[in-house]
Amino acid sequence: MAPDTKHLEVTLDTHVESVNVAEEMCLRVAESAGFGEDDCYRIGMSVREGVINAFHYGNQEKPDKKIHLAVDITPDKMIIHVLDEGKGFDLSHVPDPLAQENLLSTSGRGIFLMRAFMDEFNVVPGRTGGAEIIMSKKLPGANPVPNGQGGQSAAPQQGQGT
């Protein structure tokens, strides 16, 4: 970790209330990092969706599993990691919630919302064998992300999706 990076990490139970705890924690970090109201809303919503994904799809609501949340504040962006203890999933297998046949689906919009609300979004194999969502938002006033390094990317894995 770079010396000018601030790091915060917490391990959460696989419980509905962990979604609110994670959201509130990241909102406090985002506010102190200088994000405005709209960006805080987008960050908070993305954290909610990431932890809901870990709670429901990754850990399958099993209370013996944990959700690992980490936040890094670098000189130019806020990076959020959400790691579950599930089987991982392949982003390319996640159905498009905007496809006509999926509009009436009752689930499957979490990944879409995180992609829409954050500057960068990725899923990689986690150190616990589960999926690790990594997403970031540029800090207010930071220089734009250089070409080829921004936007959304995907890291295929095996297993189930959300």
Binding site: M45, E49, I52, L104, S105, T106, S107, R109, L113
Partner: peptide, 13 residues
């Protein structure tokens, strides 16, 4: 959130 959206859709259908 996405769960709330899902619940709206469930209610609708």
């Amino acid at each position: 959130d996405s769960s709330g959206i899902g619940e709206l859709v469930t209610g609708f259908t």
